[in-house]
Design a protein around this nucleic acid. Structure first.
Length: 238
DNA sequence: CTGACTCAAATTCCTCGGTG
DNA sequence: CACCGAGGAATTTGAGTCAG
């Protein structure tokens, strides 16, 4: 896919059949008429009024509920790189500021204002977009996924009670702490199976499993095939 | 109303021991 | 090295309380 070089602001209509895709730029979506079903970042909502933000490389699905028209702003990476925006798609609280932003965008469309004005407006809009949130516990998980982890010590990092921490973590990430670590471990294991010739036992230890049997059972449950089968499938595909 | 917390029950996961 | 079953430990979930 070519990198988007300029901001695109235009009206679009979406089709009744679901369209799943991602792109390497951010997108803002303002429904002007009709309603749109959106699925992204574990969220599923019907957008009729307001604004929806899609970050770069976020897989999402649009499906029109009825005849519709949306104001869409595609924002190239170079405009958002330094803004530390959220990596999660999000519905944006629809207030007077956002109504004004939509008005200015539409006004710019009608008058075909110069590109500089649109770029200035997008730079301004970034201040109101959801920011990337970092949490000590999540950073810790990424750095220590192959160590022994327990909820109590993670909860301590956020100063929460362990039981409350589980619920809080799921709210923030969409995953329980355990399944979040499992995802990191699975990706690492797949990477090592794919790119190294290490034994399955070694890889099991590398991703934090004390027991090979646990690792094999868990891997097969996740991928449908055992680690060795996974590796041989990759080899035959090459 | 929301966030923080507790408790009990249910569920999931891991290890151990064993087999092929 | 891969896989299975059992048992125990850890985690998650749901319901309820309390404070701001």
């Amino acid at each position: 896919m070519d990198t988007l070089r300029e901001i695109i602001c235009e009206k679009r209509a979406y089709s009744y059949s679901p369209h799943t895709h991602d792109h390497n730029y951010s997108q803002l979506l303002f429904p002007l008429a009709g309603a749109l079903d959106i699925q992204a970042s574990e969220q599923h909502l019907t957008l009729q009024e307001g604004c929806f933000y899609i970050p770069p490389r976020q897989l999402h699905t649009y499906q029109a509920k009825n005849t519709n028209e949306c104001l869409v702003v595609d924002i190239p990476l170079k405009f958002t790189e330094s803004a530390h925006l959220s990596q999660q798609a999000a519905f944006i609280q629809w207030d007077s500021t956002w109504k004004a932003i939509r008005y200015l965008l539409l006004d710019g469309l009608q008058k075909s204002t110069d590109r500089g004005a649109l770029e200035d407006l997008v730079r301004y809009v970034q201040h109101y977009l959801p920011k990337k949130q970092t949490f000590k516990s999540i950073d810790y998980l990424h750095a220590n996924f192959n160590q022994e982890l327990n909820i109590e010590s993670l909860a301590k990092l956020e100063n929460y009670h362990p039981v409350y921490f589980s619920a809080w973590f799921k709210q923030k990430t969409g995953y329980s702490p355990q399944s979040y670590v499992a995802r990191i471990r699975l990706n690492k294991a797949k990477e090592l199976l794919k790119e190294s010739s290490y034994s399955v036992t070694y890889i099991a230890h590398e991703v934090g499993y004390h027991s090979l049997s646990s690792f094999t059972k868990w891997f097969a449950k996740q991928e449908g095939v055992s680690p060795t089968q996974y590796r041989s499938i990759l080899k035959t595909d090459k």
